[in-house]
C-alpha cells in the first residue's frame, strides 16, 4: 500500500489545507449540481481541475490514471442509455434487428460519467498535495470531533505497518499453495479456502488487539490522559480567504453557465 501524497514544491501544495478541503468540497458540490448535458460548463470544470493538476506538478498522467478509478462504477448508470425517454435512436446491429437507445438517456449517462471523473480528479488532487497530518489538523479546525480524529490518526499511523503484515501473510500462504508432483488438482474446496482466509483475518485482528495494548502503554508513558492534545488554531490568512471566496464565486458562475446551457 502506498501513500498517495506526493511531496513537491508547488503552489497547490502550499495552500492552507482548510482552503483545499473547503474548495474541493465546494467544487464537487457545484459540479454535481450542474444539470446533465451542460457541456460548456463541464469543459470549464474539467479545464479548471486540469490546470490545477498541471500547476501541482504531480504529472498529469498520474492524475488522469488515478482518476479513472471510478470507471467500473459507470456500469451502474449504463442502463440509462437504453431505458431513458424518447426520442429513441437506433444503432444498426448486423442490419436487423437494430438496437434502440435513448438520446436523453445517453446524455445523462455521459454527464454522470464526466462528473464522476472530474470529481475524482479533484479528490486525487487534494489527497496528493496535502499531507495527512495537515488534513487532520484542517478537519479539527473545521470542528470535526477530536475523539474521531484521534481514532483516524492512530489508524493512519498503523495502517502501513499492518498492511505490511497482511502482505507477509498473503506471501506466506502463497508460498505453501503448491501442487503435488504428478498431480494436477490443487486448491482445496472453496469453503475451505474462504475459512483459511477467515483464519488469517482472525489472527490479524487478535494481533492488532494485542498491538493496541502496547500502543496504549506507549501512549500512557508519554502522558496520554484520554484527552486529545489541544490543537493550536491559526486563523486563515486574508489572502487565503480571498482566494477561497474567489474560487467559490467562480464555481457559482460556472454552475450558472451549466444551468443555462444544460438540459
Amino acid at each position: 500500500m502506498r501513500e498517495l501524497y506526493t511531496p513537491n514544491h508547488s503552489a497547490v501544495h502550499r495552500i492552507d489545507a482548510r482552503v483545499k478541503v473547503i474548495f474541493t468540497l465546494a467544487f464537487i458540490v457545484f459540479l454535481n449540481l450542474t444539470p446533465s448535458g451542460a457541456w460548456p460548463a463541464y469543459i470549464l470544470f474539467f479545464t479548471w481541475m486540469f490546470s490545477l493538476s498541471l500547476s501541482s506538478r504531480l504529472g498529469i498522467a498520474f492524475v488522469l490514471k488515478r482518476s479513472l478509478l471510478a470507471l467500473p462504477f459507470v456500469l451502474a448508470a449504463l442502463p440509462l442509455v437504453f431505458t431513458g425517454p424518447a426520442p429513441l435512436g437506433q444503432i444498426p446491429v448486423l442490419n436487423t434487428p437494430s438496437l434502440t437507445y435513448s438520446v436523453v438517456g445517453f446524455y445523462r449517462f455521459a454527464s454522470i460519467a464526466i462528473k464522476a471523473w472530474v470529481s475524482v480528479m479533484a479528490a486525487v488532487l487534494l489527497a496528493a498535495t496535502t499531507r495527512f497530518p495537515d488534513l487532520l489538523t484542517a478537519f479539527s479546525q473545521l470542528k470535526v470531533p477530536a475523539l474521531f480524529l484521534t481514532i483516524i490518526g492512530l489508524m493512519w499511523r498503523y495502517l502501513f505497518v499492518i498492511s505490511d503484515e497482511v502482505t507477509r501473510m498473503l506471501i506466506a500462504r502463497t508460498s505453501r499453495s503448491a501442487t503435488a508432483p504428478g498431480s494436477n488438482r490443487s486448491g482445496g474446496s472453496l469453503f475451505w479456502r474462504a475459512r483459511v482466509t477467515g483464519g488469517m483475518a482472525g489472527s490479524l485482528f487478535l494481533r492488532s488487539i494485542e498491538r493496541s495494548d502496547r500502543v496504549y502503554a506507549a501512549m500512557l508513558s508519554r502522558g496520554y490522559t484520554g484527552q486529545p492534545a489541544a490543537q493550536k488554531t491559526t486563523r486563515l490568512q486574508k489572502k487565503d480567504l480571498l482566494a477561497l471566496a474567489a474560487g467559490v464565486i467562480l464555481l457559482v458562475l460556472l454552475w450558472l453557465l451549466g444551468v443555462i446551457t444544460g438540459g
Partner: peptide, 13 residues
Amino acid sequence: VPLMGVLAAAIFA
C-alpha cells in the same frame, strides 16, 4: 481509543 484506531487499520488492511 487505541483499540478502535488499530482495529480500524486492521480492517482497512
